[in-house]
Structure formats: structure tokens, C-alpha cells
């Protein structure tokens, strides 16, 4: 596909042009952290944040979202679905790990038998402009789970920082249409070489791949392992590892309102809470921390492979960064991989 260069001094003008036609979400400051939010000016973009606090899943699968409003009188029930999406959106500055996570969520929400229109309507109007990670963080481990700091899967357009300029690569027809206008020049051989060099340098900073097949196989035999007790002994069950995971897609559905009018809302949820599976009778199929920490790893590294042939982890390291008791998923995976 087409590769062009754009000098860094022109990149904001490019983004400003996109802002005229699209709703743009980009890493930007919100309260005390950087997260994907709608921006109105290129200057709002925080360029050096690799791992935003909230992953971009929030744009297509919002943390809280009204599915429909209802009004009900004695004779008529009226539902007003909120599924329609008018304007096209651009996710600017998406990292390869977060793009891979969206591909995994696509496989969950966009199934032929039951399309989740709230997700797919947004997703179909969302274009991804990604950027490679020249300097992966110490918590990054995309290469361990099959990803890479310059992996372009799911991207429409991909930027690589080559010093004074970005190498811009169109990966889809849409990306190609976006990739023109003032500031873009033909990429030189030196640009391509600089891009390769950036990728090689980044790869050296990242850990070696792990065998996801071996981890899956070992997990097959670990349902009753004491391993889970060790994790749950420290785990607080706060759920942050799952709520802010770019892959995790569990949700709750609740009604807000009265019997005659209100709305049905869905919210992110987590398998790490006991109430998640608690039944009205009081019975809870996953009553303890042991079952819940097991569920998180089993789902990501075993069940997901069975169902989708995809690992339910992209190595972004948010769970490693944000765990209040320093449970390190990389360490857990290494132990599972090494288990007898």
C-alpha cells in the first residue's frame, strides 16, 4: 500500500483537516491522566503517551451507554433505540496493541447470528490512524502475546516516527483516501530505512515471545491447581485489570427509571466482582477469589483460544501498571508456561 512522508511541522495541519470532517478521538488529558477522548484542536493530542488510562474501546463500547429509552402506559410500550450513529469518527494515535484488542472485540460483538448494533454501528464508522511505538514502556509485552510495536493489523493509516517526519502508510482504501493533501511527500528510501531501524530498536526493548499454545495446554490441567490460591491471596478483587483491559468486553445491563419511563443502560462490568455471577437465590457459581482470578486467566488464555483462536490479551500492560497490589500478568504467564 501507499507510503508517504509528512514532516512533523505539517502533522497538526493534517489533523486539523480531519477535524473538519470527522469526530476525532485521540490521547488527550482528562483530569489527571491521558485517555482517549474527543478533541477539537490538534494541540490537545498528547503524543508521547503509549498507554492511555482508558483504552480506546470506550469509543465503540462506552463505559456507560443508553441502549434505548422506554415509555409505557396501559396500552402502549414505546422504545427509542439509541443505536444510530451519524458522523464518522477517527481514532487518532491508536497503538498496535489497542487496535488488536478492537479486532478481538469485533469477533465478539459482530457475529452473524446476533450483531450487537450498538457496537457495530459505531465500529463501522470508526477509522483507525495508528502510530508505532518507538520506545515501548517497561510494562509493555505485546511481543509476548503475538503482537508488535509496529503491527498494523486493524489500522487504516499508520504513522511511524522517523525523526523529523512521520512515515505514513495507508493500509486500507479508506486510509489511502485520507493520505493526501498538503504536507505529504513521496517517501524516500532513507525514510523506509529509518522506519525499519525504529522498529528494530523498539523490538530490542521488548520481551521474547511466549508460547500461547503451551500456556493454553498447561491451563487445561490447572483448574484445580493451588496456583489460583496464591494469586487470590494478594488480589483485592478491585477489577481494574479487567475494567481497563482493552480486550475485556463484559457488561451489565440495568434499567434506570420508573415502570412508566426511563432508559435501559449497559455498563462495563468485570468477572472479578462476586456480584457478577451472584444469582437472586443467593447461589454463586464463582463464590471466591480463587474462582474469579482463575476465570480471568482461563478466559483470556484458554477459552478465547478455543472459541476465536485468538489470545484475549494484547500485552498493553495496563493491568500491570494499574494493579494496586502489583500482580504482574507477565509473571503469572511465565509461571503457567513453566508449570509441569
Amino acid at each position: 500500500m501507499t507510503k508517504k512522508r509528512i514532516a512533523k511541522e505539517h502533522i497538526n495541519a493534517f489533523l486539523a483537516r480531519l477535524l473538519e470532517d470527522y469526530i476525532v478521538y485521540a490521547p488527550a488529558e482528562e483530569a489527571n491522566y491521558v485517555t482517549f477522548r474527543q478533541i477539537t484542536a490538534p494541540e490537545e493530542v498528547v503524543w508521547d503517551c503509549l498507554v492511555t488510562r482508558k483504552p480506546p474501546k470506550d469509543v465503540v463500547f462506552p463505559q456507560t451507554e443508553t441502549l434505548f429509552t422506554y415509555t409505557k402506559d396501559a396500552d402502549v410500550l414505546r422504545l427509542q433505540s439509541m443505536e444510530a450513529v451519524e458522523k464518522e469518527r477517527i481514532l487518532w494515535g491508536v497503538r498496535p496493541c489497542d487496535a488488536q484488542a478492537m479486532l478481538i472485540q469485533d469477533a465478539v460483538f459482530d457475529t452473524p447470528e446476533d450483531r450487537d448494533v450498538y457496537y457495530t454501528n459505531k465500529r463501522e464508522k470508526t477509522w483507525l490512524i495508528g502510530i508505532g511505538c518507538n520506545q515501548p514502556l517497561s510494562t509493555c509485552f505485546c511481543t509476548s502475546v503475538g503482537g508488535g510495536p509496529f503491527k498494523k493489523d486493524g489500522m487504516d493509516l499508520f504513522l511511524t516516527d522517523i525523526g523529523e517526519a512521520y512515515l505514513a502508510e495507508a493500509l486500507t482504501a479508506k486510509g489511502k483516501r485520507l493520505l493526501h493533501g498538503r504536507g505529504f511527500r513521496r517517501a524516500t528510501k532513507a525514510d523506509l530505512k529509518a522506519s525499519d531501524a525504529a522498529e528494530q530498536t523498539a523490538l530490542q526493548r521488548l520481551p521474547a515471545p511466549m508460547s500461547m499454545d503451551i500456556i493454553k495446554q498447561h491451563l487445561d490441567g490447572m483448574m484445580d491447581s493451588p496456583f489460583w490460591d496464591e494469586i487470590q491471596a494478594t488480589c483485592l478483587g478491585c477489577g481494574i485489570c479487567t475494567l481497563l483491559c482493552p480486550v475485556c468486553y463484559c457488561f451489565d445491563i440495568v434499567d434506570e427509571g420508573t415502570t412508566t419511563c426511563g432508559q435501559r443502560v449497559r455498563n462495563w462490568d468485570t468477572c472479578q466482582y462476586s456480584i457478577y455471577t451472584l444469582e437472586a437465590s443467593g447461589h454463586n457459581p464463582r463464590p471466591g477469589g480463587r474462582q474469579r482470578v482463575r476465570q480471568r486467566l482461563m478466559h483470556k488464555f484458554n477459552y478465547h483460544l478455543v472459541n476465536q483462536n485468538l489470545v484475549g490479551c494484547v500485552g498493553c500492560g495496563r493491568c500491570v501498571q494499574l494493579c494496586p497490589v502489583n500482580i504482574d500478568l507477565r509473571q503469572l504467564l511465565a509461571e503457567i508456561g513453566a508449570a509441569e
Binding site: 446476533d114 450487537d116 468477572c271
Partner: peptide
């Protein structure tokens, strides 16, 4: 316990 009923919301997951 179920919410979506169509294999998405996750809570009735048992094994695969």
C-alpha cells in the same frame, strides 16, 4: 445469571 442472552456480556461463561 444472565444479562444479554446472546453470548456477549460474559457472565454465564463456563469454560469455552
Amino acid at each position: 445469571r444472565m444479562k444479554c442472552g446472546i453470548g456477549k456480556c460474559g457472565r454465564c461463561n463456563i469454560g469455552p
